[in-house]
Simulated assay, not measured.
Amino acid sequence: MNPTVDVHEAKTKFSRLLEQAHAGQEIILAKAGKPYARLMPLAPPLSRRQPGRLEGRVGDEFFEPLPDDELDAWKRCCW
């Protein structure tokens, strides 16, 4: 269960609460005894794009022009 901390207490222990959140713990901040906000760790950064990681998965047919009927369907739908 996530600990609930009153706003007044959070002000005095903010650095410690930040360290706990950074370590992965979610902390609920309460105002007048009611949950008000959530202090939680940031999501890990997305991995960097890596050129060539789909090599061998996409064949030459992927780059061929679309048939006219399919192009017409796209034009009707989206333009």
Rank of each mutant, 00 (worst) to 15 (best):
residue 33 G to H: 03
residue 9 E to L: 10
residue 66 L to F: 04
residue 37 A to Q: 04
residue 28 I to V: 15
residue 35 P to I: 09
residue 22 H to L: 11
residue 78 C to E: 08
residue 53 R to Q: 15
residue 78 C to Q: 01
residue 76 R to V: 07
residue 42 L to F: 10
residue 65 P to G: 14
residue 50 Q to I: 14
residue 15 S to C: 04
residue 34 K to V: 06
residue 7 V to H: 05
residue 68 D to L: 13
residue 50 Q to H: 09
residue 29 L to R: 00
residue 34 K to I: 03
residue 74 W to V: 12
residue 19 E to C: 03
residue 29 L to E: 00
residue 33 G to L: 05
residue 56 G to H: 08
residue 15 S to Q: 08
residue 39 L to R: 02
residue 41 P to M: 03
residue 2 N to Q: 10
residue 48 R to I: 12
residue 17 L to P: 01
residue 32 A to Y: 07
residue 40 M to K: 14
residue 25 Q to F: 02
residue 2 N to R: 14
residue 18 L to C: 13
residue 4 T to Y: 00
residue 36 Y to H: 09
residue 32 A to F: 06
residue 75 K to T: 06
residue 2 N to D: 14
residue 45 P to H: 09
residue 66 L to A: 15
residue 32 A to E: 14
residue 64 E to N: 12
residue 78 C to A: 13
residue 25 Q to W: 01
residue 45 P to A: 15
residue 17 L to W: 03
residue 43 A to V: 10
residue 69 D to N: 10
residue 46 L to Y: 02
residue 55 E to M: 09
residue 2 N to A: 15
residue 36 Y to I: 02
residue 48 R to D: 10
residue 43 A to W: 00
residue 75 K to P: 01
residue 77 C to S: 13
residue 26 E to P: 00
residue 7 V to I: 15
residue 5 V to W: 00
residue 54 L to D: 14
residue 10 A to Q: 00
residue 14 F to H: 04
residue 50 Q to D: 09
residue 61 E to T: 12
residue 42 L to M: 13
residue 3 P to T: 14
residue 20 Q to V: 00
residue 41 P to D: 06
residue 49 R to S: 08
residue 63 F to M: 07
residue 47 S to K: 08
residue 46 L to C: 05
residue 9 E to Y: 08
residue 16 R to S: 10
residue 63 F to N: 07
residue 75 K to A: 11
residue 63 F to E: 10
residue 67 P to T: 12
residue 30 A to Q: 00
residue 21 A to L: 00
residue 3 P to K: 14
residue 66 L to W: 04
residue 23 A to T: 06
residue 57 R to H: 13
residue 54 L to K: 06
residue 33 G to K: 02
residue 8 H to F: 11
residue 23 A to F: 02
residue 10 A to L: 00
residue 44 P to D: 15
residue 27 I to C: 03
residue 1 M to R: 06
residue 28 I to Q: 00
residue 55 E to K: 15
residue 12 T to I: 05
residue 67 P to G: 15
residue 60 D to H: 09
residue 15 S to I: 12
residue 73 A to D: 10
residue 13 K to G: 07
residue 50 Q to T: 14
residue 34 K to F: 01
residue 7 V to N: 06
residue 46 L to Q: 05
residue 27 I to Q: 03
residue 52 G to Q: 04
residue 73 A to C: 03
residue 78 C to S: 10
residue 4 T to I: 11
residue 61 E to K: 13
residue 21 A to F: 02
residue 6 D to M: 04
residue 24 G to A: 06
residue 10 A to S: 03
residue 38 R to M: 12
residue 55 E to V: 07
residue 65 P to R: 14
residue 14 F to W: 12
